[in-house]
Design a protein around this nucleic acid. Structure first.
Length: 530
DNA sequence: TATAACGTTGTTTGT
DNA sequence: CACAAACAACGTTAT
């Protein structure tokens, strides 16, 4: 008895290395590849028109690729829990396949759908292919604890061996006994949405620098993998955050949507490395994929990972509530050209270099504005093409020195950092063209230019471009002290625990309902006698 | 148990 | 220009 299969695309918008899709096609007489437009998403999170466009393009590419296999993509509108029972009955479905997704929202959704499937007698097949390894397996290998350092993760992965090889894309041969029943009005009922349908104004979209889709992803991958020497020498910290063209691959949006499989990427890199001297993790391209794995594992295993409160690995900090500063930062009006240029690139193009993210994240949080990393996380989540839940939360905690990274006295200078790789400020001039007439000497700090020069440049600071909203030299020093205090509160409360009470007075207050959780995750709570 | 070494990607000053 | 030291100093982990 052959199956009627639904393959449910969510992330993993690709045909290559898609084990769940392959599982759907085996012993299959009818195949329904679907994508669910879940109204929860537009209601609960802001998504830039640029990212909507990327999604639409990815779906279009997927549909075109499926058509070459005599199939089609069905875009179904509705909440998964509501539409699946309908589809199960209407199509007489016997099997549902999808890729494992470790995000909390997805887990909840998928377990609900899985029980609905069980009620309808539908077999469910879930496959791991969004990460290099099964995150649960990695955590199990670490005795049920989430690895909190990169080195620790590397050790664990070494014992597990290399990631699985990618599986081939389905072929016409795979599908020869299997059809996708399409009605004449397929596009009217199940067509790819337009931006208008998604409530977006296409006019608002920026330049189409990174078109979505698997075809584009594989093309881009080939392009970079052919640069053998560049791949072998790649060291992330040495790449430039403010080059006029990206100094890295910009494969991240494709990986986020699953247009490119990380396993395919990993093994292609292994081929390039083969027999050649090459860089290594954490700085190599392999290393970058392991960073993704690191944060995915953390996101899968740590409760409340995208929040400070209730997050056992996150330092509790008394961040300021300053909506004006937050808005100035997110709209690129801080008065620091390097910061504002980065935010302008983010808003218009949807991608900024990793180190540029460092600079603006440090500025928003521990460096200058002392605003919660959760606020920055929200802005990135809206604007980044590659916004990925675990990576976004993990990196914001890293940069704000809330978790994983603790050397909070290392503060990025909004003036000096960019100068290292772009002395004359070409990057600033590109994204803040109204500053283009300032000489290199003043481009990173135009408020220091004499008034006459500002007038000559056609941009008077305080009138045409804001004065700095904070004085970096002053606030960064004060913030290091505030960070020190936050860490001291944390360690004194843990010391108090280990000492069995006592501790330093006044310090214990800070911890509402359970610093002990942090203990459990970070340290082994020593069963101490006496 | 104390101590040293280490940590993808700091800045400034001095040689 | 490249590189090193001083700055002030965190948590985690190995010894």
């Amino acid at each position: 008895m052959k199956h009627v299969s639904i393959h449910w695309f969510r992330k993993g918008l690709r045909l290559h290395d898609n084990p769940a899709l392959l599982a759907a096609t085996t012993d299959c007489r009818k195949l329904y590849p679907i994508f669910v437009l879940d109204p929860w998403f537009p209601k609960n999170m802001r998504v830039s028109v640029n990212r909507w466009r990327f999604l639409v393009e990815s779906l279009r590419d997927l549909d075109e690729s499926l058509q070459k296999l005599n199939s089609r993509l069905f875009v179904v509108r509705g909440r998964p829990t509501e539409i699946f029972p309908v589809l199960f009955k209407e199509w007489k479905v016997t099997r549902l396949t999808f890729e494992v997704d470790t995000e909390p929202y997805s887990r909840q959704r998928d377990s609900e759908v899985a029980s609905l499937a069980a009620e309808h007698g539908v077999q469910v097949i879930q496959k791991v292919s969004n990460t290099l390894y099964d995150t649960d397996r990695v955590i199990a290998e670490n005795n049920g604890k989430v690895p909190l350092t990169y080195v620790r993760l590397q050790t664990l992965l070494a014992t597990l061996g290399p990631p699985k090889r990618p599986v081939p894309a389905p072929t016409l041969e795979n599908l020869k006994d299997c059809c996708t029943p399409c009605k004449d009005n397929h596009d009217a009922e199940y067509g790819i949405p337009t931006l208008e349908e998604l409530g977006q104004d296409p006019e608002q979209a920026g330049l189409r620098l990174y078109p979505g889709g698997e075809s584009e992803a594989l093309c881009r991958l080939d392009l970079h993998m052919n640069r053998t020497a560049w791949v072998c020498n790649f060291q992330k910290p040495q790449t430039e955050p403010n080059s006029l063209n990206p100094s890295t691959t910009v494969l991240s949006p494709y990986i986020k949507f699953g247009c490119l499989s990380v396993r395919t990427f990993w093994w292609r890199l292994a081929e390039v490395y083969q027999g050649r001297k090459h860089s290594n993790p954490p700085v190599s391209l392999h290393g970058q994929l392991l960073w993704r794995e690191f944060f995915y594992t953390a996101g899968a295993g740590i409760p409340n990972f995208n929040k400070m409160e209730g997050n056992p690995v996150c330092v509790q900090v008394d961040w300021d509530n300053n909506p004006e500063h937050l808005r100035a930062w997110s709209e690129g009006r801080t008065g620091y050209p390097f910061i504002d240029a980065i935010m302008a690139q983010l808003r218009t193009e949807g991608w900024i270099h990793h180190l540029a993210r460092h600079a603006v994240a440090c500025f928003l949080t521990r460096g200058d504005l002392w605003i919660s990393w959760e606020q920055g996380q929200k802005v990135f989540e809206e604007l980044l093409l590659d916004a990925d839940w675990s990576l976004n939360a993990g990196n914001w905690q890293w940069l704000s020195a809330s978790a994983f990274f603790h050397q909070f006295f290392r503060v990025y200078s909004p003036i000096a950092f960019g100068k290292k790789t772009d002395k004359s400020g070409e990057y600033i001039k590109k994204y803040l063209p109204f500053l283009r007439k300032f000489p290199a000497e003043y481009i990173y700090e135009p408020w220091k230019a004499p008034r006459s020069m500002q007038e000559q440049a056609g941009c008077v600071i305080g009138r045409d471009y804001p004065k700095p909203i904070v004085v970096h030299e002053v606030v960064s020093k004060r913030n290091v002290e505030r960070m020190k205090a936050a860490y001291a509160r944390r360690s004194s409360s843990t010391t108090a625990q280990l000492e069995g009470g006592g501790g330093k007075k006044g310090a214990k207050r800070r911890t509402p309902a359970g610093p002990s959780v942090a203990e459990l995750l970070t340290k082994k709570p020593k069963t101490k006698g006496s």
